[in-house]
Each structure stands twice: as structure tokens, then as C-alpha cells.
């Protein structure tokens, strides 16, 4: 459905997108994961024909976005990073305008009403967009993308600015949309991408770092090796004890959290599970373990991990010498 080949976009010397290639099959929900400035929006802007690539091609349903822009754009619904709303219009007027702009064929009133119901903006349909909250504006933006029922939906950070309840609603909506549409969505939140997408492309500094199913990716990423332990006992002795555990790379005291109770950040060597050993040693000395939790991976950790993975394979041989 979407075919991207060797896409590059450079602004002067800076390469915003660097030789990206991927394909998205019909009915697939693809997640674009990356920190701000990774090139997510640039890629999406190229796919939708808003800007042109420096080199490389992007095809939507077989139509090249540069050679047959109108044909390709017909198949796309796009929600940019900032929803492109005319603040002086009411929601209804705006959606009617988009309907005419896209030359949609569905019966207008029913189509717009149906979309408003799906993104839950029926109650604000007659209000002026200027007076809507960020969350509602975001949903009007999503409604706009859905008009004309395009096969491909490109959503740039669709849940930004929504409250947690709305986020879950929109995620569920995207999932149901995924049954009939091919979707690319971008996010810098890992759990969001995991919750919604079939496949994830991790992008950093304009390059694809990983391209895998959400399951595989999360499996490799939740290979936890960082913990926060809360232990009751004299700080220095506990630290000494912890340092004696094999497979533990680094112990960092985080200070006293309750009277006589200290927290430590533990980093284990990848692949070694220290939890049982930790428990055994602490009970031997009668230092109660009050809490042990894995620290959630931040996006930075993921990139570190993904980039380390390739380098650590090489360094393994060297490390054993």
C-alpha cells in the first residue's frame, strides 16, 4: 500500500531523513517511534506530498507522490503535528469545507455526522473551533483526516494534548480504524506504539534503527536489567553486600527513603537475572527487601540499547580476552 524507497531529505548540510526505506501492507498499523527531531514529521510530510524529498521515492497505492500527486493524495488522510484548523469556522463548517476540498463522494451530511460520532465531537459540531480545547481540536483534526474515507491514514502524534481517558479512546478508535485502513502513526511514547501498532519502526537522527513487530521489539526491549531495590538495613553494609552479587554491573545508592530504609539503583549485566540471588543474600543477612521494581525504559534507553546491540556483539569477543 505504501512503498518508500531510499527517501532522503536534507536541509542544507543537515539531513533530516537519511535513506529510509520501508513498505506498509494493506490493513497494517505501522508505528513510527522516535524522539523529537528524529525525522518522523519530515517523513510524514514527504509521504503526504506537503514537502518533497531530496531523493528517493514514495508510492501510495502504486501512485508516486511526486509524479501523480493528486492521485496519490486521494488515498491519504493526514493529521499533521499541528491540526490544520481554521479557527474562525465552526466544526461543521470546517468539515464541510474539507469534504468539498477533498471532493468526497459519500453523502455529505451522513458522512460528517458519522465521523463526528466516531471521534466523539458531535456535541461540539456547532461550536467555533477557536473556542475548543486542545483535546477537541486534536479530534477535529482526526475527523478531518477521516473525511472521504481514505485507504491510508497518516497520523502525526495523534494523542498529543489529550487527557488519559481521551488517549485510550483515540487509541481504541485507531485500532478499529486499522481494520479498514492502512495506518502510519508517529509517537514518542513506547507503550502507545506497542498498544496500537502491528509493526514498529524506530527512527533516530533520520535513520531507521529498528523495524520489527511490536511484540518482538518489546520482547527484546523488556529484557530488563535495571532495577530499583528498596532495602531496610545500614546503607553501607547493604551496598557492600550488593556489590558481591555476581552479574551485577553497577550499584548506585539513591538515599534514605523511609527511616532506616534505603533505595539502590541496580544495573545487571544483560542476560543475567540477579533477582533470586539478590533475595537469597538479603534474607541470609536479614535485610528485608521492601520493594523491587524494574525501571521503565525511556526512549533514550531504547536507542542506546538498539545501537548498543550491534556494537555489543562485536565487543563480546574482545571482552573475554
Amino acid at each position: 500500500m505504501i512503498e518508500v524507497k531510499n527517501l532522503t531529505k536534507s536541509y542544507g548540510n543537515k539531513q533530516a531523513v537519511n535513506d529510509i526505506s520501508f513498505t506498509v501492507n494493506q490493513g497494517e498499523i505501522l508505528g513510527f517511534l522516535g524522539p523529537n527531531g528524529a525525522g518522523k514529521s519530515t517523513t510524514m510530510n514527504i509521504l503526504t506530498g506537503y514537502i518533497s524529498s531530496t531523493s528517493g521515492t514514495a508510492k501510495i497505492d502504486g501512485h508516486d507522490i511526486l509524479d501523480e500527486p493528486q492521485e496519490a493524495k486521494k488515498h491519504i488522510g493526514y493529521l499533521p503535528e499541528h491540526p490544520p484548523l481554521y479557527l474562525d469556522m465552526t466544526v461543521q463548517e470546517y468539515l464541510e469545507f474539507v469534504y468539498q476540498l477533498k471532493k468526497a463522494r459519500q453523502p455529505m451530511k451522513a458522512h460528517i455526522d458519522d465521523i463526528c460520532r466516531r471521534v466523539k465531537i458531535t456535541n461540539v459540531q456547532k461550536r467555533i473551533i477557536k473556542n475548543l480545547s486542545k483535546g477537541y481540536r486534536q479530534r477535529v483534526g482526526l475527523a478531518q483526516a477521516l473525511i472521504g474515507n481514505p485507504e491510508v491514514l497518516i497520523l502525526d502524534e495523534p494523542t498529543v494534548g489529550l487527557d488519559p481517558k481521551q488517549i485510550i479512546e483515540i487509541r481504541n478508535l485507531i485500532k478499529t480504524l486499522g481494520e479498514r485502513h492502512t495506518i502510519i502513526l508517529s509517537s514518542h511514547i513506547l507503550p502507545e506504539v506497542q498498544a496500537v501498532c502491528d509493526r514498529v519502526i524506530v527512527i533516530n537522527k533520520g535513520k531507521i534503527v529498528a523495524d520489527d513487530t511490536a511484540e518482538n521489539l518489546s520482547r527484546s526491549l523488556t529484557d530488563d536489567f535495571r532495577y530499583i531495590a528498596r532495602i531496610e538495613g545500614p546503607e553501607e553494609e547493604v551496598e557492600k553486600l550488593l556489590n558481591g552479587i555476581s552479574g551485577l554491573k553497577e550499584v548506585q545508592p539513591l538515599g534514605q527513603k523511609e527511616p532506616g530504609v534505603y533505595e539502590f539503583s541496580l544495573e545487571a549485566d544483560p542476560g543475567s537475572d540477579i533477582r533470586r540471588d539478590l533475595f537469597k543474600r538479603l534474607t541470609e543477612r536479614n535485610y528485608p527487601l521492601l520493594g523491587l521494581k524494574t525501571t521503565e525504559l525511556t526512549l533514550e534507553d531504547i536507542f542506546l540499547q538498539l545501537t548498543q546491540d550491534s556494537s555489543s556483539d562485536k565487543s563480546k569477543d574482545g571482552g573475554n580476552q
Binding site: Q70, I76, P80, P84, V98, K103
Partner: peptide
């Protein structure tokens, strides 16, 4: 962004 990505 809306106008330039619309099929016109």
C-alpha cells in the same frame, strides 16, 4: 498543510 496535501 491541509490545502497542500488535499487532492487538488
Amino acid at each position: 498543510q491541509l490545502l497542500l496535501t488535499a487532492p487538488i
